[in-house]
């Protein structure tokens, strides 16, 4: 995402004599007014405080010991005597590590089913010729347009009919192969040059071999995007697991946190520790794989 320099802001506006101050030159030799650069960083820091500050405050709260006043005014931003005590206590209050494991199981399974299912279906829509392909494409497009929040009750009764409500499989299934992911993979396969696969076909490679050895390795980037977003959506999901899970043993982390908040709402340190446990893995994942997160936003939205 390389963004062009905004030249006009660096060149002096003719109607601004009172802004004339000390000037600095940037690496391209253009004039950058110092006050403008300072203002820019000041704004950036302000937004930074607004977007990341709340997470830091939560982390700080989770590290404050039982004797430290967390309600003080003016507030104390750093814990006086940092302790991991609250993390031990949250594990004693709710089985938070079991919940994290449940979330991890569902999210990992969601990554596998989405990658495999979406790659196969995407390839079928993009490359294979058969009667009904257009209908199959239309099915995925329609499915993508259905607002999930509007069908949760029917999804719940469907799960009941299948005997899968209150199971982790039930949490997994509705999103296990996202229509959106299928269409993303389809587009990725369509953008590959066809000649290579054609050559492989002439050499006697069958459909499966062409898919696995030639097409799939060329769309690794999109596959990574599908994997990351499948993990994130599953790990973060709230409404569906809230509806399908009723047994506290099977809770995922988000549902467990909601339960913790509802039951021990007055213990801010405890809730803070729980939220940090829930958010830390995703922030770590994001820190390592940023470009795929950004690319996912691009592939999902900007193409339209």
């Amino acid at each position: 995402m390389s963004v062009a320099e905004k030249v006009p802001e660096a060149s002096p506006a003719p109607d601004a004599p009172r802004r004339r101050r000390k000037r600095v030159t940037d690496e391209h030799g253009r004039h950058v007014r110092a006050w403008e650069l300072a203002l820019r960083y000041l704004l950036l820091l302000a937004v930074l405080a607004l977007t990341v500050g709340p997470f830091v405050w939560q982390l700080s709260t989770s590290l404050k010991g039982p004797t430290e006043d967390i309600f003080s005014s003016p507030p104390k931003f750093l814990p006086g005597d940092p302790t991991l005590h609250n993390y031990e206590r949250v594990a004693e209050t709710i089985p938070v590590w079991d919940y994290a494991l449940n979330s991890l199981k569902v999210a990992a399974a969601n990554v596998v089913t989405n990658c495999v299912g979406a790659a196969l279906a995407g390839y079928a829509l993009a490359r294979l010729r058969y009667r009904g392909r257009r209908v199959a494409t239309l099915v995925f497009i329609l499915a993508m347009l259905v607002p999930v929040e509007g069908i949760i009750i029917a999804q719940f009764t469907t799960m009941r009919e299948l005997g899968l409500n209150n199971t982790l499989v039930g949490v997994l299934l509705p999103g296990s192969i996202g229509a959106m992911n299928v269409l993303l993979m389809r587009n990725a396969f369509l953008n590959l040059p066809y000649e290579i696969e054609e050559a492989a076909y002439v050499d006697g490679a069958n459909t499966w071999q062409r898919f696995l050895r030639i097409a799939l390795p060329s769309v690794k980037g999109t596959l990574a995007v599908v994997a990351i977003f499948a993990f994130m959506f599953s790990w973060d999901d709230f409404l569906w697991p809230l509806i399908v899970l009723s047994d506290p043993d099977k809770f995922t982390l988000t549902i467990g946190l909601n339960y913790l908040h509802g039951t021990f709402a007055n213990d801010e340190r405890l809730v803070a520790a729980g939220t940090i446990i829930a958010v830390a893995p995703l922030i770590a994942l994001f820190a390592c794989l940023q470009r795929y997160f950004f690319r996912g936003v691009g592939e999902g939205a900007v193409k339209g």
């Binding site: 299912g117 079928a124 099915v139 499915a143 229509a179």
Partner: peptide
């Protein structure tokens, strides 16, 4: 190839 995707989407999105 398309069956798993069609099944999931059919049973858990379109049927509901």
């Amino acid at each position: 190839f398309a069956a798993p995707g069609l099944l999931v989407v059919g049973i858990f999105i379109l049927y509901p």
